[in-house]
């Protein structure tokens, strides 16, 4: 072997820590966010190195994409607001931080303790691997991660979809700032238009593919939903009017659909089984239906969340009014 993978891992680990320091200490928050996105990209590589390709897929879309877009959206909204309220109090140059000695001490003690605990206990038990892997046949799928998410611990996942829905509701409830102008709709450029025309169908196709292969290979509702969310963000940024406002017809159904289908599937099997305990023969199809519904919902929820952060929730008619 030409490459010594161990040294590659060391280099990647050092790069991760260096990027974390650079992002956290950047004087300009904009730079910090950009470095954070770069960090997300490298974390995606780290997931592959610890045998977690499912996570790499999700992280590449979320860690290096959507989270960064959220931060940049919020930042540009705040900067515009600052400019519009003209001289305003120029806030204390908030690179300023209060690092008391106790903060340093607390952090160091906690980190060292954790590291020691890991070094002591490393390699003793194999956790739940045997239990999960030995009963994989009963789950209806082959990819163990999908089996855990949608079958063995489906109850957790149902509630997590619920959390996503709650976050979207929260963003709706927080609503729009009173005086802020909307994100400047980029003047339509041919290049961007063509790109979006080309990209969006590709992303939808890839998302569908990810759901489909999720039963045997890395993929599934969360990765595909993250991709769709990314497509939504790109569409919003390119100046498209997406129906993101809760008053638009169908939006609530799309947002809540994943949770609803999941819940109904759980209830439907309850005739002679426990909640969410799928019959073995049809488990594969039940899981596929739930995943399809959740993919669409997760994508829509992520899009709405971005719209909320970047102040794009207003419907066009409201926009004209202000």
């Amino acid at each position: 072997m030409l490459f010594d993978w161990l040294s590659f891992d060391l280099l990647l680990a050092i790069a991760l820590i260096a990027l974390a320091v650079a992002a956290l200490r950047a004087r300009d928050l904009f730079k910090g966010i950009v470095i954070f996105m770069l960090f997300g990209l490298l974390v995606a590589i780290a997931w592959v190195r610890v045998h977690a390709p499912d996570l790499a897929l999700a992280e590449a879309a979320i860690g290096s994409g959507i989270t960064g877009a959220l931060f940049l959206g919020a930042l540009s909204r705040i900067e515009r607001k600052k400019k519009s309220t003209a001289p305003a109090r120029l806030e204390n140059p908030v690179g300023g931080s209060t690092s008391g000695a106790w903060t340093v001490l607390l952090t160091i003690v906690l980190t060292v303790q954790l590291a020691l605990a890991v070094l002591r206990g490393w390699g003793y038990s194999d956790g739940l691997a045997d239990e999960a892997l030995s009963r994989i046949d009963e789950s209806g799928v082959i990819n163990p991660v999908t089996a855990v998410i949608l079958n063995f611990r489906a109850y957790d996942t149902l509630l997590e979809i619920g959390v996503l829905l709650l976050a979207a509701l929260g963003v709706y409830a927080i609503g729009e700032g009173p005086t802020v102008r909307n994100l400047q709709r980029t003047s339509r450029s041919e290049v961007l238009e063509t790109f979006v025309h080309l990209l969006t169908p590709m992303i939808v196709l890839t998302a569908g593919y990810l759901v489909w292969v999720g039963y045997k290979e890395p993929g599934g509702a969360f990765q595909a939903g993250a991709l769709l969310g990314g497509a939504g963000v790109v569409l919003l940024l390119s100046g498209r009017e997406l129906p993101v406002h809760a008053a638009r017809p169908g939006v609530r159904i799309v947002l809540g659909g994943g949770f609803l289908v999941f819940l109904l599937a759980g209830l439907a099997v309850m005739q002679d089984r426990a909640f969410l305990e799928y019959p073995r023969a049809s488990a594969k199809y039940i899981i596929l239906i739930i995943e399809l519904a959740c993919t669409v919902s997760i994508g829509a929820i992520l899009t709405v969340l971005f719209a909320g952060c970047a102040n794009l929730l207003t419907t066009p008619s409201e926009e004209e009014g202000t």
């Binding site: 499912d54 999700a58 991660v145 976050a167």
Partner: peptide, 26 residues
């Protein structure tokens, strides 16, 4: 063997974290 349970926890965790971040930012 590779334990799929932490993978599942973290996969949903990543998505929940991004939605929590969005709510906080809003």
């Amino acid at each position: 063997p590779i334990d799929p349970v932490p993978h599942a926890l973290v996969l949903t965790g990543i998505v929940v974290a991004v939605s929590a971040t969005a709510l906080l930012l809003a």
